[in-house]
Design a protein around this nucleic acid. Structure first.
Length: 769
DNA sequence: ACCGTGGAGGGT
DNA sequence: CCCTCCACGGTC
């Protein structure tokens, strides 16, 4: 930073009231290096003017363009403020400011300093520069803008996700550390051209002001400036040489396109790939974390930074460990929610200041300020944790795709299974596939055996009680002779959905199409959306009149399983209390999907009990999601270990698991959705709110003529009693930007008009029925 | 959201 | 002739 020992009462950090009390020449002399000005005199005058309430503006670039932190959609643009001379040095692009907006003091980010304003009328002055730390880099600012546009949201909402809250003490301590050299990593920073990240970084950044998001093109061209030209390859301490003796392809040797992908990263290219990872867990754990780390290493070798985003803390821990092993200590930072605000901000600052070039973390890390990004990785893009739950509900895959495209970085979408969305990226030619040879798949995949509903139950009394087929019981018992075994059970708290007894088609409400459920005590099923009781229900596909519950009580299954194997330790892992790992000792591990502990040396066997629950869900993604959860569990088995899935082998999804062929399944899924006009083949948006609000908005929104409106239909309300409805808007993929703009426009007009009924807009919603 | 403006209405 | 209250529209 600019000075060695900034104190909390640095004038740049304080409101002018405080400055007024202590106007000292010593303070005023601390100007930003590189901006030469005769500050002393002007500044003293400025302070004097302050006392009379008329600010003396900064001599150069006196206008600050500010993005204001307001939730109001119609105010989603930049506002101009006057930079008072005393704040001149601190008011750097990307810094946090406080401004008076509509009479209230609010937060904002200073986007740029300019000479003049378009605004007619007087400019208000910046009230305060919160800190001169340039936390909003031009790249992230531009990314937040395009993400907001893509999701019909506001830039301020996206920035709340992208930039962590400030922690003043951490900001100060880190400055002191890197300035005094007490930070063990400070030496690597000394190699950088400048101690001030803000000014240095802007040079290589893509233009921030370009119009709209470009459609992705299948480019694989080289970057304009070759690798290592500007800054040289700056390896972190401990990285390169000593800890990594040779740079082989490692796990990528198993994939046909693997080495080409690595080579493209190393020479500064922008390869984009959907990677279908090999299953199997052995002494070294699952293979994917190391593969990710090697791809990151190649990117660093090409002189650029990298970013890895994973669905949950368990996967972050795996990737974190692999990065430490491959890159050496201190070459990356891990960003997760459980760090607490101080440590999170501390690590985030190391990235933002260019002291570290690699970040790994959960979904908010998609916005981490990795400088000169060369590779973005998302693991398991089908996991709904990648979908942000705060407005405007961006998805990690989409954010990283937009970001990689803009930064001309590589993108790696990895997983055991494959989403229809990733398949679509391949279909359009924007990304290429990375798959292993069939022979390698056969060598690593488990041996899967289906046990349909009609299969024989175990003869053992306890196993019968747990509804275990004899095949499953035998395989678990055999597995338990050599190590831990896994039982995947449906998620706790899953409301049992109902299906036709005859053909197992999900039973839906005749009124609104919602799913039926059974409530404790009630005999008749009721609709979970509109609450109607299913009186005279008839299955639309086979005419049957009887329904069956899809789920056997989950927790009970776990308890009963324990009784079926009395001499074995039972460990559970689920929503509350996720177990990250289990040892190699014999144990029966009962886990819900996504919470399966990673076993040392791999599971010896597994049974997937939740097939009916997963497949019976009234959801567009039911089959894809089922295969994803099955494969994520099955990949934790030792190569060729035995696995039983309780589902009918005639189902395509069971076949895909048997053959370990997620690619064909995903291609078929995409083809089906294309035929039905479902996402990702088409663009979807939902409008949710009160019936009046949704109808009003549908009447106002200037939709393109080819847009198709479905509904509105009643939906379950989060807060019980009030009635809510949801409408869907469907349009061709290519018109996504037009649709988003139209919806944003309508939302803005409504908010400007202070329409009483707030309507929530969601683009690319996950829960399309 | 919140503030400032200005029109209408009633009181001075 | 002025004051106040509420509705409406802008927010640098």
């Amino acid at each position: 930073m600019t000075h060695a020992n900034p104190s909390p009462d640095d004038d740049a950090l304080l409101p002018l009231d405080a400055v007024r009390e202590r106007p000292g020449p010593g303070r005023a002399a601390r100007a930003r290096p590189g901006v030469v000005r005769a500050a002393g005199v002007a500044r003293e005058q400025g302070v004097a003017e302050q006392v009379r309430g008329v600010p003396e503006p900064a001599a150069e670039l006196p206008v600050a363009r500010v993005v204001v932190d307001t939730p109001l959609p119609h105010l989603d643009r930049l506002f101009d403020y006057l930079v008072p001379a005393p704040l001149d040095a601190a008011a750097v692009p990307g810094c946090r400011v406080r401004i008076r907006f509509a009479g209230k003091l609010v937060d904002g980010f200073l986007m740029e300093r300019v000479e003049t304003t378009e605004h007619q009328g007087r400019l208000t002055r910046l009230e305060r520069v919160v800190s001169a730390e340039p936390v909003l880099t031009p790249e992230i600012a531009a990314l937040a803008r395009v993400v907001a546009d893509h999701y019909a949201g506001t830039m301020a909402d996206v920035l709340r996700l992208a930039v962590p809250p400030r922690h003043a003490r951490v900001e100060a301590e880190a400055v002191a550390a890197s300035g005094t050299g007490t930070d063990p990593r400070a030496e690597s920073e000394a190699a950088e051209p400048s101690g001030e990240p803000g000014s240095e970084r802007t040079a290589g950044e893509p233009e921030t002001g370009e119009a709209g998001p470009r459609p992705p093109e299948p480019v694989r061209e080289r970057r304009e400036h070759g690798p290592g030209e500007e800054q040289g390859v700056v390896p972190g301490p401990g990285q390169g040489g000593d800890s990594e003796p040779e740079r082989g392809p490692g796990p990528w040797a198993d994939y046909r396109e693997g080495e080409a992908f690595l080579a493209a990263l190393a020479k500064g290219g922008s390869p984009r790939a959907v990677w279908t990872a090999l299953p199997g867990t052995d002494q070294d754990g699952p293979g994917w974390p190391r593969a990710v780390a090697v791809a990151v290493r190649e990117t660093l070798h090409g002189g650029r930074g990298a970013l890895v985003v994973l669905p949950d803390g368990k996967d972050v821990a795996l990737a974190d460990a692999a990065l430490s092993a491959v890159l050496g200590p201190g070459a990356h930072v891990a960003l997760t929610a459980d760090l607490g605000p101080a440590e999170r901000y501390r690590r985030w600052l190391r990235l933002s200041r260019g002291q570290v070039r690699v970040a790994v973390g959960t979904r908010a890390a998609a916005f981490a300020p990795v400088a000169d990004l060369g590779l973005a990785v998302i693991w398991d893009d089908g996991d709904d944790l990648h979908s942000e739950r705060l407005a405007p509900y961006p998805h990690t895959r989409e954010v990283l795709a937009l970001r990689a495209h803009r930064a001309r970085a590589g993108l790696l979408i990895g997983g055991y299974a494959r989403t229809a969305e990733a398949t679509q990226l391949i279909a359009t030619g924007w990304a290429g596939p990375i798959v292993a040879a069939r022979q390698a798949v056969r060598a690593r995949a488990p041996r899967v055996r289906p046990a349909g509903e009609d299969s024989e139950l175990a003869r053992d009394e306890a196993a019968r009680a747990a509804r275990l087929p004899s095949l499953a019981w035998r395989i678990l018992r055999t597995g338990l002779e050599s190590g831990p075994v896994l039982v995947q059970v449906p998620r706790r708290g899953y409301l049992p959905a109902l299906a036709c007894q005859g053909c197992r088609a999900p039973a839906r409400c005749g009124h609104c199409g919602g799913p039926f459920a059974l409530r404790g005590g009630h005999v008749a099923p009721y609709c979970r959306w509109c609450g109607r009781i299913a009186g005279e229900w008839r299955c639309p596909s086979c005419g049957g009149a009887r329904v069956r519950a899809q789920v056997v009580g989950a927790r009970r299954t776990a308890e009963e399983l324990g009784r079926a194997f009395p001499s074995v330790r039972v460990k559970t892992s689920g929503r509350d209390g996720v177990l990250a790992t289990v040892g190699a000792a014999r144990a029966l591990v009962v886990a819900t999907p996504g919470a399966e502990p990673v076993p040392e040396g791999g599971y010896a066997a597994a049974v997937l009990l939740d097939g009916w629950a997963l497949l019976g869900r009234p959801d567009l993604r039911a089959a894809e999601e089922t295969l994803r959860r099955w494969m994520n569990a099955a990949a934790l088995l030792r190569p060729s270990a035995e696995l039983v899935v309780l589902a009918d082998s005639s189902l395509p999804v069971v076949q895909a698991l048997l053959r370990w062929d997620p690619v064909t399944h995903a291609e078929r899924e995409l083809a089906d959705r294309t035929e039905l006009g479902f996402p990702p083949a088409v663009k979807m948006a939902t409008l949710t709110g009160s019936p009046a609000g949704v109808r009003e908005m549908l009447g106002e929104v200037a939709l393109p003529p080819e847009a198709q409106v479905l509904g509105p239909v009643p939906v379950a309300s989060p807060r019980g009693d009030q009635v809510r409805e949801r409408a869907m808007v469907r349009i061709a993929r290519g018109s996504g930007a037009t649709l988003a703009a139209a919806l944003k426009g309508a939302v803005g007009v409504r908010s400007a008009r202070k329409a009483a009924e707030v309507v929530k807009v969601c683009i690319d919603p996950l829960d399309v029925i």
